[in-house]
Simulated assay, not measured.
Amino acid sequence: MRAAAWAALACLAALPAPAQTADVCGREAEPCTTDTGTYHVALPDTPEAGMPAVLFLHGAGGTGRGTLGMRGTINAITDRGYAVIAPDGLPWRPGRRGGIWSFREDLARLETRDEGAFFAEIVADAAMRYDIDPDRVLLSGFSAGGFMVTYLACRTPEAFPAYAPVSGGFWRPHPEDCAGPVKLLHTHGFTDSTVPLEGRPLRSGQWLQGDIFEGLGLFRAANDCARPDASGYRTTGQFMRRYWDCAADSALEFALFPGGHGVPAGWANMALDWFEDVTALPQETGGQ
């Protein structure tokens, strides 16, 4: 188990035994509260001890409860026996609901937080409440949540077993380099105009979204890939996928779909198949 999760678990030792069926902080309940934030949880119909989970980060202005409203995606995940942990970002604008993530302090709106520590804290909390296995958690997120996932994968690849950003990468200036090895699946829409593949300026050029392919180059370097071109290609439903065979204990893949800015149908099962493959988890049958 990762050190941060162990430390957080030690602080939570006095909590009651894990709830196997109670919806303590699920779709309709109040959020669970930790020292530094709040989160919601969706559980499989029949939760099992030591179940895996997807920690999914909402986009700008979103909420954890809103994440659980993505019924198709959430149900596809829980149908596979996974829990979904949906945290709340920090306040985005005064007087407005919804939050944002501290992926870069110079882009923060109102306040910042050590998001890596927050995520470790809520994974540990969810592990105590629901008997989730903290070593079997995929970190994913959409748009601004995808930005956060990408930056955390770059800074601390050991924090989670694998990372799966959707429609979100780096901002300019890109990091000089990333730590590695890392296991990362990036998914993006071909016609995304909110976070274009090439990036775009915001606020008259004050902020610049980065280039997705340049970001993949940073992860190739972190994974000690010998070549920039893909090692192979495959297609899963609407997803056109390319992958790189690089250093041991690394995995890097890019999945393109013919759509815009959103979490596409079929993503959950594709991402979980990939997660189970790269982390050597037993595969289960599911459908979306």
Rank of each mutant, 00 (worst) to 15 (best):
212 I>S: 13
94 P>D: 09
184 L>Q: 06
75 N>Q: 15
35 D>P: 12
28 E>Q: 13
80 R>E: 06
58 H>Q: 12
82 Y>M: 02
108 A>T: 02
13 A>T: 05
48 E>S: 14
48 E>F: 00
15 L>I: 01
130 Y>T: 12
171 W>N: 15
192 D>M: 10
124 A>F: 11
131 D>N: 11
178 C>R: 08
74 I>Y: 14
245 D>E: 14
275 F>P: 03
211 D>W: 13
67 T>E: 03
29 A>R: 09
65 R>D: 02
177 D>K: 15
283 Q>E: 00
56 F>G: 04
126 A>E: 10
134 P>H: 07
267 W>G: 04
13 A>S: 13
50 G>N: 01
168 G>Q: 08
140 S>H: 00
150 T>S: 13
237 G>S: 06
129 R>H: 10
78 T>L: 14
184 L>S: 07
128 M>H: 02
98 G>L: 05
252 L>R: 01
137 V>K: 00
86 A>T: 04
142 F>R: 04
278 V>I: 07
116 G>T: 09
111 E>M: 05
87 P>H: 09
228 P>Y: 07
122 I>L: 12
53 A>L: 13
20 Q>K: 08
160 F>V: 12
98 G>P: 10
208 L>N: 02
76 A>W: 04
215 G>E: 02
178 C>T: 03
166 V>H: 06
150 T>I: 02
269 N>C: 15
73 T>W: 15
32 C>D: 03
88 D>L: 02
99 G>M: 10
273 D>L: 12
41 V>H: 05
196 P>M: 01
187 T>M: 01
7 A>S: 14
209 Q>V: 02
11 C>F: 06
194 T>K: 09
281 L>N: 00
120 A>I: 06
212 I>H: 01
150 T>H: 02
240 M>N: 08
110 L>D: 04
97 R>Q: 14
158 E>R: 12
187 T>I: 12
29 A>G: 09
252 L>T: 02
201 P>L: 04
76 A>S: 05
146 G>M: 01
103 F>M: 06
2 R>I: 05
93 R>E: 13
61 G>A: 00
69 G>S: 15
77 I>E: 10
121 E>Q: 04
204 S>D: 15
106 D>R: 14
254 F>A: 10
9 L>H: 03
142 F>L: 13
137 V>M: 06
18 P>K: 15
205 G>R: 10
70 M>G: 06
72 G>R: 05
141 G>W: 01
283 Q>P: 06
98 G>S: 08
129 R>G: 01
129 R>F: 11
232 G>S: 10
96 R>K: 15
23 D>H: 01
155 R>D: 13
241 R>T: 08
30 E>G: 09
169 G>K: 11
11 C>A: 11
50 G>C: 08
88 D>Q: 05
174 H>A: 09
62 G>H: 00
93 R>C: 12
243 Y>F: 13
10 A>F: 11
94 P>M: 12
129 R>E: 12
110 L>P: 11
184 L>T: 06
160 F>L: 08
173 P>Q: 11
95 G>V: 08
119 F>K: 00
31 P>G: 03
41 V>W: 04
94 P>N: 03
281 L>H: 09
203 R>P: 00
172 R>S: 14
182 V>D: 10
119 F>E: 03
31 P>C: 07
